[in-house]
């Protein structure tokens, strides 16, 4: 009994690591490779999750739905919806400095959360969308695998696919241009590259990957509510993961997801053990403080993360800084 409990916990643990890995890979495309700031990951995550949920659930009076589409169609819809949102945000902020993009993404995330909470016909509001099916559930059961384990396998397959494409993109000529944009935009522009276009492409692709993460989350968890897309879970943890792991490095994104999720979920047990009776309500904020402080320490002492991006990036940087 004890053992199956641990096994179930581990399965759920790694499923979340997988979902966060996908989000971190998406952020790495935007921030790590191209230097675009997205502090509204939660918005892209949410639109992916809700799109897939609405596409795949069966007829209900509680929210828009009844399309009964298969899982893969749901995921494709999640990716497409999130990428479209990315296109809109990226297009509006294309010529603006980083700070405006950051503000615009926060605005999108918060506005989407309002829409989700208030448009009951679409999302069932704060009561949430339930009854989202896990993919191939019957098949896994027939094979004798638990539903959780099946879900984990599905998530891991998509982590693999996302990683494969992210890595291919990073090593391609396209990825090299993105890094050039990040390091020295004027020079890249002068070299005849359409900087705005490359940025937009990276932002849209990153947003699509985040949408995929949202879709996977919806099908694993089976239930969605606006609460899940608060900035803490939707955005902040992903940033800490990427920065801790090493931005610019897809392996770093994966490693960061594992490490930070261990710390984040581990801190729950620690708090439970440490906090005196009656102070249980403090566990949540204390965990946030812990992760927040960890982020600041990383930023100050090791901004390149656990797995720094490979060498060539720093050559021009020191020079540029001294001049200013």
């Amino acid at each position: 009994m004890e053992l199956t409990g641990i096994a179930a916990y581990l399965v759920s643990f790694f499923t979340f690591v997988g979902i966060y890995s996908v989000l971190a890979l998406g952020l790495n495309m935007q921030w790590g490779l191209t230097g675009q700031f997205n502090i509204g990951i939660a918005g892209f995550f949410a639109i992916g999750a809700y799109t897939s949920a609405i596409l795949t659930t069966s007829e209900t009076t509680r929210h828009l739905g009844g399309f009964d589409q298969p899982f893969l169609v749901g995921l494709a819809g999640a990716v497409a919806a999130s990428a479209l949102l990315g296109l809109a945000v990226g297009w509006i902020t294309a010529r603006l400095r980083t700070d405006y993009l950051a503000i615009a993404t926060i605005g999108i995330a918060e506005t989407l959360r309002l829409v989700i909470a208030n448009e009951g016909w679409l999302t069932n509001g704060v009561r949430g969308v339930s009854g989202i099916q896990r993919p191939l559930d019957g098949t896994f059961q027939a094979l004798g695998l638990g539903s959780g384990l099946g879900s984990l396998l599905v998530v891991l397959v998509f982590v693999g696919i996302a990683y494969f494409f992210a890595e291919r993109a990073r090593c391609s000529p396209w990825g090299r241009v993105l890094r050039a944009v990040r390091e020295n935009e004027p020079a890249t522009e002068a070299a005849g590259k359409n900087v705005g276009r490359f940025r937009l492409e990276a932002f849209v692709v990153g947003a699509g990957i985040m949408g995929l993460g949202g879709g996977l989350y919806a099908h694993h968890f089976g239930f969605l509510s606006p609460e899940a897309f608060l900035p803490l879970y939707g955005t902040f943890l992903v940033w800490v993961m990427l920065i801790a792991g090493g931005s610019g490095n897809n392996k770093g994104a994966l490693l960061g997801a594992v490490v930070i999720w261990i710390i984040w979920s581990g801190s729950e047990f620690v708090m439970r053990g440490v906090l005196p009776e009656g102070y249980g309500g403090h566990a949540g904020p204390l965990r946030v403080i812990l992760i927040g402080v960890l982020l600041q320490v990383i930023l100050i002492t090791r901004p390149e993360g656990l797995l720094p991006e490979k060498a060539p990036r720093d050559i021009g940087k020191g020079a540029g800084r001294r001049e200013s």
Binding site: I39, T235, F236, I243, P285, V288, I289, G292, L299
Partner: peptide, 13 residues
């Protein structure tokens, strides 16, 4: 930007 975003969460907590 990200540091201050995190700082906001810390302060709130």
């Amino acid at each position: 930007l990200i540091s201050s975003f995190g700082m906001g969460l810390i302060i709130r907590s």
